[in-house]
Design a protein around this nucleic acid. Structure first.
Lengths: 231, 231
DNA sequence: ATCTTAATTTCGGCA
DNA sequence: TGCCGAAGTTAAGAT
């Protein structure tokens, strides 16, 4: 990886066109040729970038650019999409290269699939007397996250999201419509479960007779038994 | 901005928990205290990060960690959400700090609003004899991107996306349902326009009698007149 | 300030 | 390989 701090201007042409006026920035060139241009603020997203696979051509600027103070012209082209990024380097303030080697990668815990696994193992979080039929219950339009029975033995379709948005309610509605056509399991009621549910989504859900449940990850982890951990 | 190349392991606890095993990585600490941890590959997204506003506490590791080879412990905490990132630094291979100053920011061209502006100015891309009623036609559930009339003088609602997904079709469907309740303009037909339309979205749209149009940005730019450029 | 929508989204899983 | 959905999405615009 090469790290460069330089005064530069940048032009991108690809799915859109974009321009960065002259300023001092950090340029990160990764081992695969990909390039990131960062300012000293904002969040993790660079001001501009080029995704791999790509190649960099380091060339001399023409006389006009030289007169404008440009010392080097870095042309980054994606070898697959024909996107192009041109960095006009005016002054280099720092330049160093480092061998990093491969990265073992990130290990995550607490994403949507974990919510599904944990809450299925503790199905009573959805109500007393609930029993699990199965996770990822298959239908013609995709799998339902959890299918269960409530205390009255009525089938319940549960849709799980990390953040409960209006889209999730629409999705569950489509499942319910389909499931209720099956006389073997009809009537089927619905539960919309998420760590956080948007007010608009809650309103729509309840208007359609769908119950909303807030899932607490810490609580689910606390209730996790040794047996659950095996899965 | 501080650039550090170090052998480190990283732990994050917040909306999820995540762990990065010991390896050599680049750590970028921005002026606002935000932190990015990059490997020598992947795309612009860091392996792990902390978004501003946040503060960093540089401290000595305890004896156990010292025995495990940890020289420094960097504790990054978000001052708003209580997320925490802990970087265990084993060895520093590079460390430099740079004053970058403010960035003038990125200037973009070719995003969704440009597609809307350009195609409205060349409304005939949607069909011969089309005429524009107005852009951002207001309704109770939000503005319709473009309202037009076709050659037969029928009102047409046009929904524009850069990438045509199933959500966009649902959105247009809601608009059409509402607009068709207004006897002044009913019947209203629909067009789903995008630079790229997903097969599933196209199927759903056409099943609902909505025509799909692929927008070509280059072509739209080519047809742009000097008059259009003023807006 | 809060909410809605777009994004050069990226990233992972599965068919 | 292509399609689909989630993301610690982030970021910009509107209410």
């Amino acid at each position: 990886m090469r790290l460069v701090v330089a005064t530069c201007s940048v032009d991108y042409a690809g799915r859109l066109t974009a321009h960065l006026p002259r300023a001092m920035r950090t340029i990160m060139i990764k081992g695969d040729g990909s390039v990131l241009i960062h300012s000293d603020g904002g969040s993790y997203k660079p001001l501009n970038w080029m995704s791999p696979p790509c190649v960099i051509d380091f060339s001399e600027p023409d006389d006009d650019l030289k007169a404008a103070g440009v010392r080097e012209l870095w042309r980054v082209t994606n070898t697959k999409t024909a996107d192009m990024l041109v960095i006009s380097v005016l002054e280099i303030h720092h330049d160093s290269t480092h061998e990093l080697g491969d990265d073992p990668g990130l290990i995550k815990d607490g994403v949507e699939s974990d919510l599904q696994r944990l809450s299925a193992a503790q199905i009573e979080v959805y109500g007393e007397g609930f029993s699990l039929i199965r996770r990822e219950y298959p239908t013609a339009i995709g799998p339902v996250d959890i299918l269960a029975r409530d205390a009255a033995n009525t089938v319940v379709a549960i849709e799980i999201k990390r953040r409960g948005d209006i889209d999730g309610v629409e999705q569950l509605t489509r499942y319910l419509e389909l499931l209720n056509r099956d006389p073997m399991i009809s009537p089927v009621s619905g539960i919309f479960a998420a760590q956080e549910i948007k007010p608009q989504a809650r309103t729509l859900a309840e208007d359609r007779g769908i119950r909303c449940v807030i899932l607490d990850l810490e609580e689910l982890r606390g209730g996790e038994t040794d047996h659950d951990r095996l899965f």
